[in-house]
Design a protein around this nucleic acid. Structure first.
Length: 466
RNA sequence: GGCGACGUGGCGAAGUGGCUAACGCAGCGGUCUGCAAAACCGUUAUUCGCGGGUUCAAAUCCCGCCGUCGCCUCCA
C-alpha cells in the first residue's frame, strides 16, 4: 500500500522519483555510506552527511519514523598504507581518524546517525554472508581470497547501467575466474598488521562486503533508502546489490539515492589532492553558512566550492538572522492588528516548504518558501498596522520550526551584546537627542570597533553583532 | 571507446508541455533615517548553450551540434 502523499526521492535504479516507504515496523530505514577513516574528512565527504542527516530531520518532522545508519570503514588498503607512513598501527590510525570524523561532523550540529557501525565490529556477520554466497554458488575461494562470481548474478550492472560485456577490468587478478569478479575476502599479506581468522584463512573483508553485512544487520532486508555519493554507484553500490541480493534473494533497498559531487576545479577528492577539510571550512565560515551553502543547491546537482558561493550563503544567513531579530523587535513592541496577508503567507510558505522537500528533497525550493515567509513578516512588521504579539509569536515559532528542519534553528539565537556596547548605544542616543551628531557618529564607530553595529529603529537603537 | 549528468538574468539557483520564468546574492532608483544600517517597494532574462523538428502551445518532448563534468581504478 503506497501512500500517494509520501515524500519522493529520485531512484538511481529506476531513474525516476519514487515514494519513501516505511518497512513493516513503520520505520523508514536509511543507510548511507560513510567515509574510510584514514585522514580528516573534506567538504565533499560532508555533503552526504548533511543531506541525509537533514533528510532524516525532515522525515521525523513530517511524522515519519526514520532510522539513519552510516558506517565508518575502518579497515582497508589506504588505512594500512597511512598507518605505515604515520608509524602507528592501522587500528590506532583508524580509531584516531574515526574519532576525528565524529568530532568534525558533530560541529555541524545536525545530530548523529542512529547507528554508526564499524567494519571491525561486524566480522562475524561479514564472514557469514560470504559463506552464504559460497554456498549459493555465487562466490569461490581461490588462493586465500574469496571472489564474487559476477556472471552468476543475473542483475549485475542494473544500478550503474553497465553490461558485463562492455566492461574492462584493469585488475584481472591471477586467481579470478572472470576478470570482473571482485574480492569478498582478501587473504592476509605480511605487511598488514590487522587481520582476522576465517574459514578461508586469515585476512580481512574486501571493500564492498562490509556495507552489505552492516546494512542488513542494522536495517534488515529491503529497507527504504540506500544513499551515498554518486561516485559510489559503480563499483561499490553495484557490488553491494550483487552481494546482498545474491545472498538473500530479496531486494537490498528500494531507493538508491546519490548526491552529486562537490567540485574544486573538478571533483573534490583526496587522491586528487584538491580538497578543503571540513574542519577548515567550519573554522572559516561556521556551520550555518556551510549548511546553507550545501542546501541552497539541489543534492543531485554538482556544487562548485567557491568563496563567492560561501559569501552568498553567508549573506543569506544574515538575512534570516535579521528576520528573526525583526520579529523579536515586533514582539517586544507589538501592534494590535491581525495581518490577514501574513497569516496567508504563513500557510502558503509552510505548505510550499513541505511540498518542496517531498519532491525529491528540493531544498533550494524550500529556501524560496522560507524567504517568501520572511518577506511577508518583514513587510508586516514595518507596515502601517503592526500585527499583535500573538500573531508575531506564532510566525516566529513557525519560522524557527522550518529553520530547525534544515538544521538552522541556531539562527534564532539571541545576540549576546556586551554591556559596554549597550552603554555606548545609550550615550549615543543622548547625543542624538542633543543633535550632537559628531559625537553620535563617534560612538557608533567605537561600537563598531567592538564588533557591533547600531541600527536605529522606531523603538530605539538595536545593537547586533557585525 | 562505453555509460550517465548538466548548460536558465551580472552571479547562484528553482521550474521539465500552457498562470506575468520562483527564490537568494549583487547593482540601480525610491521609502524610512540627522547620516547610516536593517527592512520594504520598484527595476535588471520578450527569454531559457546553438540549429532544426513535433505540437494549437516547449526552457520543458525529439534529432543534431557545441561546451562543462562524473563513472568505467581507490574515491562521499
Amino acid at each position: 500500500m503506497t501512500d500517494p502523499d509520501a515524500p519522493r526521492l529520485y531512484n538511481t535504479l529506476t531513474k525516476r522519483p519514487e515514494p519513501l516507504e516505511p518497512g513493516p515496523d513503520g520505520v523508514v530505514g536509511i543507510y548511507v555510506c560513510g567515509p574510510t577513516v584514514y585522514g580528516p574528512i573534506h567538504v565533499g565527504n560532508a555533503r552526504p552527511f548533511i543531506v541525509f542527516s537533514v533528510l532524516r530531520r525532515y522525515l521525523q518532522r513530517r511524522g515519519l519514523a526514520a532510522r539513519l545508519v552510516s558506517n565508518l570503514t575502518d579497515i582497508n588498503d589506504k588505512i594500512y598504507e597511512a598507518a605505515r607512513k604515520a608509524g602507528v598501527s592501522s587500528t590506532e590510525l583508524a580509531e584516531r581518524y574515526g574519532a576525528e570524523y565524529v568530532a568534525d561532523t558533530d560541529r555541524l550540529g545536525l545530530g548523529r546517525p542512529d547507528l554508526e557501525p564499524k567494519v571491525t565490529e561486524f566480522l562475524p556477520e561479514i564472514v557469514a554472508m560470504i559463506q552464504t554466497l559460497i554456498d549459493r554458488g555465487l562466490a569461490y575461494a581461490a588462493g586465500g581470497d574469496v571472489y564474487f562470481r559476477v556472471d552468476r548474478f543475473p542483475g549485475y550492472g542494473k544500478l550503474s547501467g553497465r553490461r558485463i560485456e562492455d566492461m574492462v577490468s584493469t585488475d584481472p587478478g591471477t586467481a579470478k575466474e572472470h576478470p570482473l569478479d571482485f574480492a569478498l575476502w582478501k587473504g592476509h599479506k605480511p605487511d598488514e598488521d590487522a587481520f582476522w581468522e576465517s574459514p578461508w584463512g586469515p585476512g580481512r573483508p574486501g571493500w564492498h562486503i562490509e556495507c552489505s553485512a552492516m546494512a542488513e544487520a542494522a536495517l534488515g532486508r529491503g529497507f527504504a533508502v540506500h544513499g551515498g555519493g554518486l561516485d559510489l554507484v559503480f563499483p561499490h553500490h553495484e557490488n553491494e546489490i550483487a552481494q546482498s541480493e545474491g545472498a538473500s534473494g530479496e531486494p537490498m533497498a528500494h531507493i538508491w539515492a546519490h548526491n552529486e559531487m562537490i567540485e574544486l576545479g573538478g571533483k573534490m577528492s583526496k587522491s586528487e589532492g584538491n580538497i578543503v577539510l571540513l574542519r577548515d571550512a567550519l573554522d572559516r565560515w561556521g556551520k550555518d553558512v556551510l549548511i546553507t551553502f550545501m542546501l541552497r543547491n539541489h543534492y543531485r546537482s554538482k556544487l562548485p566550492l567557491s568563496d563567492e558561493g560561501l559569501e552568498d550563503a553567508s549573506r543569506q544567513v544574515e538575512t534570516i538572522r535579521n528576520a528573526v531579530r525583526s520579529l523579536d523587535r515586533g514582539i517586544s513592541s507589538p501592534g494590535t492588528a491581525v495581518d490577514r496577508e501574513l497569516a496567508d503567507a504563513l500557510v502558503r510558505s509552510r505548505n510550499e516548504f513541505f511540498a518542496s522537500l517531498d519532491d525529491d528533497f528540493n531544498t533550494p525550493r524550500a529556501f524560496a518558501a522560507l524567504f517568501e515567509l520572511i518577506r511577508a513578516a518583514n513587510r508586516a512588521i514595518d507596515g502601517p498596522a503592526r500585527p499583535d504579539a500573538g500573531q508575531l509569536r506564532s510566525i516566529r515559532s513557525e519560522l524557527v520550526q522550518l529553520l530547525d528542519v534544515l538544521g538552522l534553528a541556531d539562527l534564532s539565537a539571541e545576540d549576546a551584546v556586551p554591556a559596554e556596547a549597550l552603554e555606548m548605544a545609550g550615550q549615543r542616543e543622548a547625543a542624538r537627542a542633543a543633535r550632537d551628531f559628531a559625537e553620535a557618529d563617534r560612538l557608533r564607530d567605537a561600537i563598531a570597533a567592538l564588533g557591533y553595529e547600531v541600527r536605529d529603529t522606531p523603538e530605539g537603537p538595536r545593537v547586533t553583532p557585525l
